[in-house]
Each structure stands twice: as C-alpha cells, then as structure tokens.
Computed example of a mutant assay.
Amino acid sequence: MTEPAWQDRVWARHRRRTGAVLIVGTGAVGGFLAEELARLGFSPLHLVDPDILEVENLVRHPLGAPALGQPKASGLAGRIRREFPPCEATGVDADFLKLPVGEQLWLAEQADVVVAATDSAACQRRVNAVALAARKPAVYPAVWVDARVRDAEVGEILWVLPGRRTPCYECAAEFRNGAADAQAARGTRLDIQLVALATAQVVAALADPEDEHAAILDRQRTAVYLHGLTPTSPAIRDAFPTGGLESRNVRIPFPDRPCPACHGSRLRTWDAARTPPDEREGARWAHVAAFLTIVFIVMLLFLVLAGRFIRS
C-alpha cells in the first residue's frame, strides 16, 4: 500500500489536526505528549531535551530498553517518524537554556503552539519569555511532587495566550507562592499519561479554536488541575475532597504588581483579561466619545465665558 493511500485510510476515520508544535522537555509528560500529538496529526514537531534515557526512566517514558543511553529528543523523534510517518519530527539534543537566543526565538516562531514540559523552573521561565516575545500561545504541563503532595497526585496544565490576554507562567509562579519545581520524577505512568492526554487537548484547542477540544479552554480559568489515581494526601483534600479521577479548572489571577515577564497586573489587565474583543472595542469607542463630549463642553463653556468677558 502506498503512503498516500495509507494516510487516506487513517484520516478517513479521524479528523487530522494541523499545526507545528515546539516541545521543550521530552521526559515523561513531554514524551507521551509528543506521541499523542503525532497521532492527532500535528506536524512538524520540534523536540528539545539534553538528557539521555536512563534505566529509571523506563517505567514512565515511551522509549523502551533498546533506547537506553540514547538522547531522548532525537530518539523520540526517530520513533515518531517510524511509527507515525505523516509526522515530521526533529530532535534537538541540547539544553534549551544554553541555545543561542536567536535559535530559541526561531524555534518558537516556527511553532503554532509552544509547550514547556521540563523539570526546571529556570527553563520554564525562559520558554515563557521566548513564547511571549514570539507572541505564541504556550502550554506548561507538570506533575506536582513538592513536599505538600506525595507521589504525583496532582497534574497541572497552564496555558498562556500572548498579548497579556491571560496570566503568564511567571504570574502563575507567584500564584503558587513559590512552590518547588513541578516535575514528574515520582509520577506513575498512569498519572503522567493522564496529564499528557489532557495537555494534547489543550494544544489542539489553542491551535484551532474551532476544534471540538476547545471546550477544555475557559477564558476565565486558564489552568486545569487533574487528580490522578494515587491515594489522596491531606495536603490536597480541600481541592479534591472526593478523591479518585477528577479535574478542575482554576482561574490564575494576575499579580498585584506588574509581572516581570508579561508586565501584566490586576490593575492594568482587568478589562483585557475578562472582556471579549468585541466588547473591548465597543468600550474603547465609548471612552473616545466620552472624551470628545468633555472636550466639547469645556470649549463651549470657554466660549460662553469669553463672550461675557468681551461684552463687559
């Protein structure tokens, strides 16, 4: 069977999503996410990660034992090209933080959606800055394993729209009160795959607002928290009192002071964050009309007073 005929049969039953995605971090969450995006039809995928696959990664990574000792990014890109031929996947075996600034920006500019799935807060912040500079929507999936939560009970997916329409990663970091770096170090495979699948829906929605997955996005709430299948610890029972598999959309507020990355704050972005574009345009013209009315009244009063002064 020729390749075009093979692809026709695949996409005859499933609507193919389109768009380029940059994934920084191809560990547990990023690895499964890359495969899911390839299945959905996204292409090209640019994968960036400096690490190699080690024994402790095997239980929570799509690459198996034959890939031990190989770079995660290029190894995963090769696997995707073999198993999902319609997807053009490339791997960059490098630390995103150490790439030249121009290359960082170029990678982001080539993408329709940027994903940061690393276990480094510094790298997440850098991806945030680059995505904002390139004016690209970005997604930040993670699994909480800080001291307050045991064994990756909570997955977090934050999405950011450019132009201060939503709080950015730095804004969310302040919201978390400086929690430890979120990572998937102790997460079980089920928890990690759950976060990866939900993240794929967010990416699909950002790439195409008309996609059926767009329902996962909430203009007022720009993060999803997922409770996995592990036992519930006291630290999160208030958020997920019933335990078990559950999700919840959360509104990440803008900080009180201007954010150092996106410069957004509650005062400066209140209308932009909560008002639809058509309403904002109407409000803008209303402000202009009010200003012109005030100017007209002031000029009229000036002319009346000037006339009285001349007559006197």
Rank of each mutant, 00 (worst) to 15 (best):
V92D: 03
Q124W: 00
A180P: 03
W159P: 02
V149Q: 12
A116F: 00
R126I: 05
R81F: 00
F84L: 15
V149T: 14
A134S: 08
R135Q: 15
V115G: 04
N177A: 15
C87H: 02
A133C: 11
E83W: 10
A121T: 15
R150P: 03
P162V: 10
D93V: 05
V130C: 10
C87N: 02
A122S: 13
V149A: 12
W144F: 06
E156K: 06
A134H: 04
A117F: 11
R126K: 14
R176I: 10
G178F: 12
E83M: 11
A94N: 08
A111Q: 08
L107T: 05
R148D: 14
N177T: 12
R176G: 08
A138E: 06
Y140E: 05
A129W: 02
V154A: 09
T90R: 01
C123R: 11
A173C: 11
C168R: 08
E103P: 01
P167I: 12
W159T: 04
K136I: 10
P167G: 09
F84Q: 15
A147E: 15
E153Q: 15
E174W: 11
A179H: 13
A147T: 14
A131R: 03
E109C: 02
R165D: 13
V145K: 03
A134G: 05
V143S: 08
L158N: 14
G75K: 05
A138N: 03
S120G: 09
L107M: 09
G178R: 15
E109F: 00
R125C: 09
R82M: 06
T118M: 10
A133N: 08
S120Y: 04
R81Y: 00
P141R: 08
E88V: 03
N177F: 10
T166K: 10
T90N: 00
S74D: 01
